[in-house]
Write a protein that binds this DNA or RNA. Structure first.
Lengths: 206, 206
DNA sequence: GTCTATAAATTGATAGAC
DNA sequence: GTCTATCAATTTATAGAC
């Protein structure tokens, strides 16, 4: 806790977040969460019925922070290429503040793929709108012809993967230099949108 | 086993691969591996001392299939842009045959980041060479100025992420239509290299 | 090499006192 | 609400017969 004791339930949620995000559901231990929260293990079951319920609270919260954001930025009515710049910058910033969330989410959706879709839709995701919006840019000739879904997945890939694969890339490309990799990630905020815009901008158009 | 009984050790490795890749180390159970291999649980410990040792055999094998390949393609002496085409096509094909390996590797390197680096180097990865090679292309004006490491990470992101995030993307963008998503992944073999080449090709140059 | 039986340790969950 | 003590089930690993 950064703040001064916000009550037991908050302490539990904070501790559970830390442990689940680091270890995943299968690797997490209720005892470790209790220790982290500086309370007794039995109290976890008093506030949340089971490990599964406690996990769901944490997972839903993580999804809520990372999924709607994707669709919000693109729903604004700025210039499309500008929207990409803003999205990439803000999304990488968001992940920089919670660098373990991507691998946590990827891990858990693969462990239990069924529950995902409804959760996402309920959190306000509107993939159809986003696709139409991209298609409109293609039709008007502002960007080169591309399947909107491919572009969408490309954008997400470029933002998210470097965090999910961090140990690998940091180890191989940066001799495990944490600070250098941090800089590398920060500089991606500009590099990635440059890369995407170069890829799709239609130079014939004016 | 697709082939007719290759001996106990092979049966174990095949079964362990299946279970570990699907469930991860923490989620895997020795009993399930034994069932899958149609042998007794004690026999697992006879052939491999412990769950940890058995896991390492599987993990090393997975790394061996997916890491060296990255550097091999780029070491050939074809035209650089052609190399990107070939790499993207072949690497996506490789993952299509083992679609769960990416999330498996990402999950396990995050669970135990330390052991990674040495393993990769020992498998013949040569990141320095690849960086120099990209830098040469920049210097000669064939591709636009870019940090070689950024380009490298971009290529990997675009190839790997759509598999790691499959349940999410397939669920949201494809209403969970498995066949459609399969087609989408296959068409990425062409789409991704087009995207990358558009992004980096220097049109001023000739 | 392969099996049955079982040990030994871990872990999620509950009972019951305060 | 919070704690101690403990249950019950699971799970890795080993002993020992064949």
């Amino acid at each position: 806790m950064t703040e001064i004791d916000k009550g037991t339930e908050s302490k539990i949620l904070y501790a559970a977040h830390k442990v689940f995000v680091n270890k995943g559901f299968d690797g997490a231990r209720m005892q470790e969460i209790a220790n982290e929260a500086e309370i007794n293990k039995a109290l976890l079951h008093y506030y949340f019925r089971s490990k599964e319920k406690l996990f769901e609270a944490i997972f839903e919260d993580a999804m809520g922070k990372f999924v709607p954001k994707i669709f919000e930025t693109f729903a604004s009515d700025t210039d499309f290429l500008k929207k990409i710049e803003i999205f990439v910058e803000e999304y990488i910033d968001l992940i920089l503040e919670n660098p373990l969330i991507p691998i946590f989410i990827l891990q858990e959706i693969n462990r239990n793929p069924e529950r995902i879709v409804n959760m996402i839709i309920s959190k306000g995701a509107n993939p159809q709108l986003l696709q139409l919006l991209i298609q409109k840019e293609v039709d008007s000739g502002i960007i080169k012809p591309i399947d909107p879904r491919q572009l969408f997945v490309n954008i997400l890939s470029l933002c998210i993967f470097p965090f999910a694969g961090r140990p690998l890339i940091q180890g191989v490309l940066f001799q495990n230099n944490k600070e250098e990799y941090e800089k590398f990630l920060v500089s991606r905020k500009k590099e990635v949108s440059k890369f995407i815009i170069n890829a799709i901008k239609n130079n014939d158009h004016e």
